Amino acid sequence: MPVIIVNKETNLWKEICSEYATKRAQSESNSYMSSEKKSSNNTDINKKHLNDKQVYDPSKHTPVFCNYSFIHAPIDDITQIQIDTRITHPACINYALTPIQDFERELALKTANQRPKTPMKKSPKDIPTIEYLEKYVYPILLKGIEQLLVEADKRKCLERKRSAFNALDYLTSYLYYNNPIRIDSNEQNNQNLALNNQFFENIPFVHEHFKKHPRAPLPKSLLWSEDEAALIIQSFYRGYRIRKQPEVQELRQWQREWRESNRNIHDVVDNFWRQRTPLAPV
């Protein structure tokens, strides 16, 4: 189908605004693919503004401009122009014509050259503090806090005033064992030792710190579970009830007196046999 492309007159202010919008979109994009999509969308919008593709209509267009891209180029003095009808047409006066194929080829080259280059990856030390926190710290930290709340709920820390669960120790071990840099560098070792050595005391800097500054042991009231504490308390109370009986009290009194009288029984036996044994002849 014959097509006519009309090149519209461009506005300098619109070009500046579109260029600024393109640069701003590229700077705010997080990846090259998103920036490429935005730039392609912007170039498509620019094409729509700069070019008007119309289907050839004999009632509206002259056949001279069919399959040509034209733009109005006014000339000061038309009378001085000599027209050769063998190679041109009088309707082409004041117009610049370009074949549509050449025009589309040139436009494709321009848009290809205007595509944004692949941004260089910055190291974490070169990016701003807020961007570093949002990109490297918060994604892992928020997951760690979520797991921390789940573990605290399992340990029933929200139901008691005292608990053996240390939130800082758990969060430290979670951040250390889920560090992407450490996982990438020691991926094979971590796959083999993931379930065996993921303890807070096995972290190297924690192990070195505990050598110089050992922690005091926790009381048994924090280490025992409810079932273990109930079993120990019940067994102690049953033993107390049995020891309270008169017969058991009398037996314990006799055992106490017997131990007092026979405290040094070994010395008494040695002295007895020492006195009965004659001295060896000289």
Results as ranks from 00 to 15, higher is better:
Met1Gly: 07
Pro2Met: 01
Ile5His: 02
Val6Tyr: 06
Lys8Arg: 10
Asn11Gly: 01
Asn11Trp: 00
Leu12Val: 03
Glu19Lys: 08
Arg24Lys: 06
Gln26Ile: 11
Glu28His: 12
Ser29Arg: 10
Ser34Tyr: 10
Ser35Cys: 09
Ser40Leu: 14
Ile45Asp: 07
Lys47Pro: 12
His49Pro: 02
Asp52Leu: 13
Lys53His: 12
Pro58Lys: 09
Ser59Asp: 12
Ser69Gln: 02
Asp77Met: 00
Asp77Arg: 02
Ile78Lys: 03
Ile83Asp: 01
Thr85Tyr: 02
Thr85Met: 01
Arg86Ile: 00
Ile87Glu: 04
Cys92His: 05
Ile93Pro: 01
Asn94Asp: 04
Asn94Tyr: 04
Tyr95Ile: 01
Ala96Thr: 04
Leu97Asn: 01
Leu97Val: 01
Asp102Asn: 08
Phe103Ala: 05
Glu106Ser: 08
Leu109Lys: 13
Gln114Asp: 14
Pro119Lys: 14
Ser123His: 10
Ile127Gly: 06
Ile127Lys: 12
Pro128Ile: 07
Pro128Gln: 09
Pro128His: 08
Tyr132Val: 13
Glu134Lys: 14
Tyr138Val: 10
Ile140Ala: 11
Glu151Gln: 07
Ala152Gln: 12
Asp153Val: 00
Asp153Ile: 03
Asp153Met: 02
Asp153Asn: 06
Lys154Tyr: 07
Cys157Arg: 01
Glu159Trp: 04
Arg162Leu: 15
Leu168Ile: 04
Tyr170Asp: 02
Leu171Met: 09
Thr172Cys: 14
Ser173Cys: 11
Leu175Ile: 13
Tyr176Pro: 10
Arg182Phe: 14
Arg182Asp: 15
Asn189Lys: 15
Gln191Phe: 08
Asn196Met: 04
Asn197Thr: 09
Phe200Gly: 01
Glu201Gly: 04
Asn202Ala: 09
Val206Gly: 05
Val206Trp: 03
Val206Lys: 03
His207Ala: 09
His209Trp: 02
His209Ile: 01
Lys211His: 02
Lys212Glu: 07
Ala216His: 08
Ala216Met: 10
Lys220Gly: 12
Leu222Cys: 13
Leu222Asn: 09
Trp224Thr: 04
Ala229Gly: 05
Ala230Tyr: 03
Leu231Glu: 06
Gln234Cys: 03
Tyr237Ala: 03
Arg238Tyr: 00
Pro246Ile: 00
Val248Met: 02
Trp254Cys: 07
Glu257Ser: 07
Trp258Phe: 12
Glu260Met: 11
Val268Pro: 01
Asp270Ala: 07
Gln275Ser: 12
Pro281Ile: 08
